[in-house]
């Protein structure tokens, strides 16, 4: 049953991709496919990064409302980027080899995430209120720090930073696409190899230790993977706070399963379907009159409010 739904989802996703590549294509097909293909690949990479990072984060926090973005992970990434521009200068920043820049940023991001969130997730997971509060405060702190740095740099360099600070599915960065693909691929492989262990981790710290899972080490590992994935999605598409939540909530509604072997591919497919279909719609039907990120963030925000209301009632 879950497998059949997974197959249907996969077929729908492939159809959406074909639609995205061919709808309204005129002129030299080779050029169109190359142009749109790059864009499609970035969309899919972002979709996988968002879906996997959110699902993993919820597993490790044992919580259905929190996402890495709500906890300020992407704010952390923006701070790192701004700090880079601030220290290197805009032109040298833009001149960096995208591959190396990306790898370095991801590494710094992973170290910083571990330092900031490592202790919080280990001990604080039972106290949801404290986690949300800390996350929100941390997010505000990181964003304010970013704003301060942006004020300190000169206007030209600010333009470089600014283009990275908004969610944008219309013009995804394609410079670091190869690096991004590698990172997401490696993360997905690592996650897939511990899919059964993740089922146990979801039972909580004490139960998973009782079942022979080295919980503290797994939490650190997942945190590192989440940080790497968030740096990919933020670098390619900018910060998007509620997309992940929308995707994961849809996944849990469509496929009520506890097995990560089902949940993870399902979430990835739903994210891909949502982004590719949405982008096709906004580009071809609404002819860029509106932005996909706004629509998705609006929906995701509603889901967030709904989840909060529901958890208050129960």
């Amino acid at each position: 049953m879950p497998v059949r739904r997974l197959i249907v989802l996969a077929i729908l996703t492939v159809l959406a991709c074909v639609l995205f590549l061919t709808w309204g294509a005129r002129g030299d097909m080779g050029f169109v496919l190359q142009f749109r293909g790059g864009k499609l690949l970035s969309l899919l990479t972002v979709a996988a990064a968002i879906a996997l990072s959110t699902m993993l984060f919820q597993t490790v926090t044992g919580n259905r409302i929190l996402t890495p973005s709500i906890m300020g992970f992407d704010a952390l990434f923006l701070l790192i980027q701004t700090a880079l521009v601030w220290t290197l200068g805009g032109s040298r920043f833009a001149g960096l080899d995208p591959m190396w820049k990306f790898a370095a940023e991801s590494l710094v991001m992973m170290a910083a995430a571990l330092a900031l969130f490592g202790t919080l997730l280990g001990r604080g997971r039972t106290d949801l209120n404290r986690m949300i509060l800390t996350g929100v405060v941390l997010g505000i702190g990181l964003r304010s720090l970013t704003a301060l740095l942006q004020r300190l740099i000169d206007p030209n360099e600010f333009a470089v930073v600014q283009s990275a600070s908004f969610a944008r599915f219309n013009r995804l960065e394609q410079d670091g696409l190869l690096a991004a693909l590698c990172i997401v691929g490696l993360c997905a492989l690592a996650v897939w190899r511990m899919r059964e262990t993740l089922d146990v981790v979801e039972l909580g710290r004490e139960r998973s230790i009782g079942l022979g899972v080295d919980h503290d080490r797994i939490v650190i590992k997942i945190l590192l993977i989440v940080a790497a994935l968030v740096s990919v999605s933020t670098a390619l598409a900018g910060p998007a706070v509620f997309v992940g939540l929308l995707v994961v909530s849809l996944t849990r509604a469509i496929l009520p399963s506890h097995r990560h072997a089902i949940l993870l591919p399902c979430a990835t497919l739903i994210a891909a379907l949502l982004l590719v279909l949405g982008q096709t719609l906004f580009e071809r039907v609404l002819s860029m009159q509106s932005t996909l990120s706004v629509a998705i963030e609006f929906l995701g925000g509603l889901v967030f409010l709904f989840l909060i209301m529901r958890s208050r009632r129960s």
Binding site: G62, T126, E202, L203, G204, R205, E206, R207, G210, P256, H258
Partner: peptide, 12 residues
């Protein structure tokens, strides 16, 4: 094996 009075919720 251990059984504790643990509050962590058990999902679906």
């Amino acid at each position: 094996a251990i059984l504790r009075q643990e509050q962590a919720p058990l999902g679906r």
